[in-house]
Nucleic acid binder design. Structure first.
Length: 595
DNA sequence: CTAGGGTTAG
């Protein structure tokens, strides 16, 4: 006779906690999470090998990385799982450098990486040394034999193909060598070619894939089995794959990206199965090209099939509207958002602010911004930048002050907006102050955009010498935008000598841009240097200058026009109106500045 | 209950 064994008290406590932690996955509120963390501490379970990773994951979801690190640091000898969990947390929160540092520490501590470690780490391979990092991981993975695991080579293909034009070749080599491939391998490779702009290569792979219910599999297997080549048949079988909705969507995306909307549409219509993603891709594709009618019509069709736009759908379409200036479609999306719960999402409101700002409707942008319950850095940045770009420099700077007062820590994007605001108001001294402050007070290292703003401000303010000095002494190589900024400053202040220098640099960087010569020619003309005008005219003779165009949105569609364009059916009426406006402007005293 | 973490399209 034995007494029933009652589990120790801590076990039930532990299971209760695990239950709470599992729940946190669904509704993760920071305070609730910290409360549970405190409970694990009290019952000495914060070092538990099953609970600690869950805490780290939960903190990762709530973006409380310092707390996640804190959990990790409490563990004397972290195991592989804990390292993996931390690497994932850092990667998911865009702390890529840190993720690598943790990986290096893992190596140093002698904790073995496993086949789970690498997919996490590969996601952190973006940026400047992306390709080198992927190559390094590739070498590790080969040595440790993890290529056997289909997830690892698939992640490698994805990361290679995201590491610039050089990576795509390595991705393809790996793809070709893989003895076993699945639909993700194929799709990742196709997406790689799409990103590289090599649509014909993407198409070739897509065509090699089979469609569900096609007979090609059987035919292929039949042929080989009749020839007694079962091994070969099996080998081929392991490497081919059926298309799925991702394969189709990637191709639709590819054609949208290169602007071949007819092709995109043809594939879209042929898709055997659609979800929200391809609908979003094609609608945003039309919107980005300024084809509001088609986009709107497809949105109707999508809703007819019973699919409801989600967060990603509205954000993608709004971003496309912002890019092409489709205010009308943007407003339609806005009213959809107001009739759904999507308006509570910060990212959705940020997309709305950006759309309204880029479309020039600052009042609407402001009212969205003001109506937000909670704002993040992106909300403030979008609003500051929106105001700055539309000539409300003082209001932008006021908003910046308010942002700092509310305890939001500005980032490098914020300062692009702030400096841009100074440019538009001509606040040279203010700009200098902000430029120094960004490094001193916020630890932000100025990037080329910040130098560009400063050079623009100095140049416009007539401090040409100082602007040139800054361009030459800054720790970054001046690009075409910098020299272009300097050139237009020279034009405003009629400085022939410095303009010549800027043009020389520009010709090295973009020799086929006729605009540079045109500006120089105008500067010579303004200074009465007709020899210079003649010389530049000869230089630019062999260069085709694409006509600059403007566009306006009217009745849901985009009208594009160039200088002296008479292709519009009502062009004579349009020009009459323009003349009338011109006369009216003259009457009220406007004198145009002509170069 | 004896456990956990991974790759592709918006």
């Amino acid at each position: 006779m034995s007494l029933p064994i009652r589990p120790p008290k801590w076990t039930s406590h532990r299971r209760l906690l695990e239950h709470h932690i599992a729940d946190l996955h669904h509704c993760s509120s920071p305070s609730h999470l910290k409360q549970i963390h405190a409970q694990t501490f009290r019952s000495n379970l914060h070092q538990d090998p099953f609970i600690a990773p869950k805490l780290i994951s939960a903190y990762s979801l709530t973006r409380l990385i310092p707390h996640a690190l804190n959990v990790f640091d409490q563990i004397p000898h972290p195991n592989t799982l804990l390292f993996n969990t931390l690497i994932r947390a850092l990667t998911h929160n865009a702390l890529h450098e840190k993720a690598f540092l943790v990986f290096f520490r893992m190596q140093k501590d002698g904790v073995l990486a496993d086949n789970f470690t690498y997919p996490f780490l590969l996601k952190a391979c973006g940026g400047q040394f992306g390709l080198r990092k992927v190559e390094m991981i590739h070498a590790h993975v080969v040595k440790l034999g993890f290529l056997e695991d289909i997830f690892v080579p698939n992640s490698l293909i994805d990361s290679y193909s995201k590491a610039g034009s050089l990576g795509i070749a390595s991705a393809k080599r790996l793809f070709d060598e893989m003895p076993r491939r699945d639909v993700v391998s194929w799709n990742s490779m196709i997406a790689g070619f799409v990103r590289a702009g090599e649509l014909s290569e993407a198409r070739k792979l897509f065509e090699e894939m089979t469609e569900r219910d096609t007979v090609s599999w059987n035919t292929m297997l039949d042929g080989h089995s009749k020839a007694g080549e079962m091994d070969k048949a099996f080998e081929l079988f392991q490497r081919m794959s059926e298309r799925n909705v991702v394969s189709w969507s990637t191709m639709v995306w590819g054609y949208c990206k290169v602007g071949e909307m007819d092709m995109a549409r043809m594939l879209f219509d042929k898709m055997p199965l659609k979800n929200l993603v391809p609908w979003t891709i094609i609608i945003a594709g039309y919107a980005e090209k300024g084809l509001a009618k088609e986009a709107s019509c497809l949105l109707d069709q999508m809703e007819e099939t019973g699919l409801k736009p989600d967060e990603a759908t509205v954000i993608s379409i709004l971003a496309a509207c912002a890019e092409s200036g489709l205010l009308g479609l943007g407003m339609r999306i806005h009213s959809y958002i107001e009739n759904s719960k999507l308006g509570f999402k910060i990212e959705v409101c940020n997309a709305l602010i950006d759309m309204y700002a880029k479309c020039g409707n600052l009042d609407k942008a402001w009212s969205v911004f003001e109506g937000m319950r909670e704002r993040d850095l992106v909300s403030w940045n979008s609003m500051v930048q929106g105001l700055a770009n539309h000539g409300y420099g003082e209001r932008a700077l006021e908003l910046f002050d308010k942002m700092v007062a509310e305890g939001i820590k500005p980032d490098s994007v914020t300062f692009v907006g702030v400096l841009c605001a100074c440019t538009h108001v001509g606040l040279v001294e203010e700009a200098r102050r902000y430029f120094t402050s960004m490094r001193k007070d916020y630890g932000i290292v100025p990037e080329i955009e910040h130098y560009g703003c400063m050079i623009d401000i100095l140049g416009r303010g007539g401090l040409l010498g100082e602007a040139f000095d800054l361009a030459k002494t800054m720790p970054l190589e001046p690009n075409a935008i910098i020299w272009g900024t300097l050139l237009s400053a020279c034009r405003v202040h009629n400085n022939v000598n410095l303009a010549e220098e800027a043009v020389d640099q520009l010709i090295n960087l973009e020799p086929s841009d006729a605009g540079n010569y045109a500006i120089l020619s105008n500067i010579y003309a303004a200074a009465g240097r007709w020899d210079g005008v003649a010389k530049t005219r000869v230089q630019m003779k062999h260069i085709q200058k694409p006509a600059g165009s403007s566009w306006i949105e009217l009745d849901d569609s985009l009208h594009e026009f160039t200088v002296g364009d008479r292709s519009h059916p009502h062009s004579s009426r349009i020009f009459k109106m323009i003349n009338r406006l011109g006369r009216h402007l003259k009457q009220v005293g406007y004198v145009p500045k002509v170069f």
